[in-house]
Simulated scan of single mutants.
Amino acid sequence: MTVTTYQVEGMTCGHCVSSVSAEVGKVSGVSGVEVDLAAKAMTVTSQGPIDEALIDAAVVEAGYQLARIELLPQAGGSCCGSGGCN
């Protein structure tokens, strides 16, 4: 089982939650969708990894956007700049 959490931008009410849940739930391989309006988060459960482009397309079809988060290496080549993580 694979569980992936995404940030969704633009949701403001229960109808938004229903729309996102319904569209993402139609994606082949998705077995569960939980949307947390307050956190602007969506947790998708599936039997295996699902191409993020399919999830993104479903969220866009519902009228919203996945937040884009890019993690870039910090000073020292580590995730936090301390040099202790690799």
Rank of each mutant, 00 (worst) to 15 (best):
residue 1 M to T: 13
residue 1 M to F: 13
residue 1 M to G: 14
residue 2 T to W: 10
residue 4 T to I: 11
residue 5 T to D: 06
residue 5 T to W: 03
residue 6 Y to C: 02
residue 6 Y to V: 03
residue 7 Q to H: 13
residue 8 V to S: 05
residue 9 E to V: 12
residue 9 E to K: 14
residue 10 G to C: 02
residue 10 G to E: 07
residue 12 T to W: 01
residue 12 T to F: 02
residue 12 T to K: 05
residue 12 T to D: 00
residue 14 G to V: 05
residue 14 G to R: 06
residue 14 G to P: 02
residue 15 H to M: 12
residue 16 C to E: 00
residue 17 V to W: 07
residue 18 S to F: 04
residue 19 S to Y: 03
residue 19 S to F: 01
residue 19 S to E: 09
residue 19 S to W: 00
residue 20 V to T: 04
residue 23 E to A: 07
residue 23 E to I: 02
residue 25 G to L: 04
residue 25 G to K: 01
residue 26 K to M: 03
residue 26 K to F: 03
residue 28 S to N: 13
residue 28 S to T: 13
residue 28 S to E: 15
residue 28 S to Q: 14
residue 29 G to P: 08
residue 29 G to W: 07
residue 30 V to C: 02
residue 32 G to W: 00
residue 33 V to Y: 05
residue 33 V to L: 08
residue 33 V to S: 04
residue 35 V to H: 09
residue 36 D to W: 02
residue 36 D to N: 07
residue 36 D to P: 05
residue 36 D to L: 00
residue 37 L to V: 00
residue 37 L to F: 01
residue 40 K to F: 05
residue 42 M to V: 03
residue 42 M to K: 01
residue 43 T to F: 04
residue 43 T to E: 06
residue 43 T to K: 10
residue 44 V to N: 05
residue 45 T to A: 15
residue 46 S to G: 09
residue 46 S to P: 03
residue 48 G to W: 10
residue 48 G to E: 15
residue 48 G to L: 02
residue 48 G to V: 10
residue 49 P to A: 15
residue 49 P to Q: 14
residue 49 P to E: 15
residue 50 I to Y: 01
residue 51 D to Q: 12
residue 51 D to F: 09
residue 52 E to D: 15
residue 52 E to K: 13
residue 52 E to I: 14
residue 52 E to W: 06
residue 54 L to D: 12
residue 54 L to I: 00
residue 55 I to L: 02
residue 56 D to F: 10
residue 57 A to Q: 12
residue 57 A to K: 13
residue 58 A to C: 04
residue 61 E to N: 15
residue 63 G to I: 13
residue 64 Y to A: 03
residue 64 Y to N: 05
residue 64 Y to S: 08
residue 65 Q to N: 15
residue 65 Q to I: 05
residue 66 L to W: 11
residue 66 L to E: 10
residue 66 L to P: 10
residue 67 A to H: 11
residue 68 R to S: 14
residue 68 R to W: 11
residue 69 I to P: 01
residue 69 I to K: 11
residue 70 E to L: 11
residue 70 E to R: 12
residue 71 L to G: 10
residue 71 L to H: 15
residue 71 L to V: 14
residue 74 Q to P: 08
residue 74 Q to C: 06
residue 76 G to W: 04
residue 76 G to S: 09
residue 76 G to L: 09
residue 77 G to P: 06
residue 77 G to I: 08
residue 77 G to T: 00
residue 78 S to Q: 06
residue 79 C to F: 12
residue 79 C to D: 11
residue 79 C to T: 12
residue 79 C to A: 14
residue 82 S to A: 10
residue 82 S to C: 12
residue 83 G to S: 06
residue 83 G to M: 09
residue 83 G to Y: 07
residue 84 G to K: 15
residue 84 G to N: 15
residue 85 C to P: 01
residue 85 C to G: 04
residue 86 N to H: 14
